[in-house]
Design a protein around this nucleic acid. Sequence first.
DNA 1: GACTTCCCGTACGGTGGCGTATGGAGAACT
DNA 2: AGTTCTCCATACGCCACCGTACGGGAAGTC
Lengths: 206, 206
Amino acid sequence: MRNGVPSDDVRTDRPARAGRRTLSRDDWARAALEAMRESGLGAIAVEPLAERLGTTKGSFYWHFKDRDALVHAALEMWVAESDAMMAAAARITDPAERGRWLTEFAFTGPQGADISTTLLINSQHPVVGPFLERVTEDRIAWGARLNEELGLAPDVARQHALAAWMIAVGIALVRRGAPQLLPQGEESDAFKRYIMELLRPGPRRP
Amino acid sequence: MRNGVPSDDVRTDRPARAGRRTLSRDDWARAALEAMRESGLGAIAVEPLAERLGTTKGSFYWHFKDRDALVHAALEMWVAESDAMMAAAARITDPAERGRWLTEFAFTGPQGADISTTLLINSQHPVVGPFLERVTEDRIAWGARLNEELGLAPDVARQHALAAWMIAVGIALVRRGAPQLLPQGEESDAFKRYIMELLRPGPRRP
DNA sequence: GACTTCCCGTACGGTGGCGTATGGAGAACT
DNA sequence: AGTTCTCCATACGCCACCGTACGGGAAGTC
C-alpha cells in the first residue's frame, strides 16, 4: 500500500522558505481525486496534474512509482472520506432521520462527491476493481442494517438497500450528465420527497 | 448529417468477388456502436476498430470525415434501434404489462443494450450531448405518458417516470460494473418483482 | 564550508491514436 | 482497351502522455 515511499506526510507544514512550497504525496493524491471527481479516471494524468499543481513530472515520480500508484492513493483518500461520512451519518440515532439525511445528501451534497459511478464505469481497471467491491459492499451492508433497524426482515432489508444504492448511483450520474432533467426550485423539494417516499421501507401511504 | 459521403448503403450486398469484402459506412458504424457498448466512448478509436474489422485507416477515412463523424453515425444507429424498441413496446396495449416488460428488459435485456450511461458520462462531448438530451427527454416523456395511462396526474407521472429512468440507469450501470451485486438465480426474480413493486405507481400493497 | 539528502527541472525515448497524402488494384463504364 | 471510379494500403507527421535518466539547487548535517 505504501509502495516504497520514504516518509509519510510530516513535511507538509515545512516553512517553505522562499514562498516556494514543496509538495507532499498527499497533495498529489488530493489533486488526483479532485480531477477524478470532475472528469473521471482519465483525468488522472501525470503531466496535466503537474501543470495544475505548478510543478513538473520530476516531482511526481519522486513521490510515486507510476500512475497506478497515484490512482491507488487517490482512491484510498476517497475511502477515508467516505468512511468518515458514513461515521458521521451513523451518529444520527433515529434511523428514519438517518435515511432522510442520506437522501438529502445524494441530491444536494457537493457535486461529484460520490465517485462510485466513476468506479463502476472503470470496474475493469485493476486498481479500481477491488476498491469498488469493498466500498459498495460496505455501503449496501450499511443500508441493509439501517433498514433492519426500521423493522425489515434481513433479505428484504438487503433488497431495499440495493435498490436505494442503485437509485443513488442513478442520481449521481444524472446530476453529472443531465442535471437539467432534475426538477429545479420548488419542484426539486417535491421530487426529493417523492424519492424519499419511494425509498421508505414498508407499506406506502396513498 | 450525411457529411459528404457519396452513396448510402446499397453496395453492401456486392458479390465481393474474391472472398474479400468491401466495407460499408454502416459496417463501421455498427462496429463502433458495439465497441462503445462494450468499453465506452473511448473504445471508438479508428485504428483499433480497423484492426478489428480486418482493414486499415485508409478505409475509415474514405467513409468518414473524422472520428467525431463515426461517433455521430454510431449514435444515430443507436437512436434508430432505441426508437424501434420503444415502438415495439408501444404495441403492448395494457400499460401495466408494458411497464413490466420494460423492467424485465432492463434486467435481462442484452448486456449494455442501453448506452445511456455511457452518454451520461460523456455528456460534455459535443457530439454526445445533443443525442443524450433528445433521447432521454423522449424516454421520460414516454414513461410519463405510460404513467398517465395508469391513472397518475401529469406532474406525478413525470416524477415517477424520472425516478424509473434513474433506476434503469442505475441497473444498467451496476450490470456493467458490479454484476455480482445483483441477486442471482431465484433471488434475481424476487428482486425484479421487488423493483417492479417499487416502481408500480399508486398506493403500495403491504 | 564540505557533504549529504530531499525535492524538483529537463531532456529523452517510447507508445498509441489522429488525420493527411499518395499510390494502386480492381471493378465499372464507354 | 482504355479510362474512370471505388475502395483500401502504406507511409508520414503530429500530439498527448508515460516512464527514465540525470543533473542541480536548496536545506539540513557534520
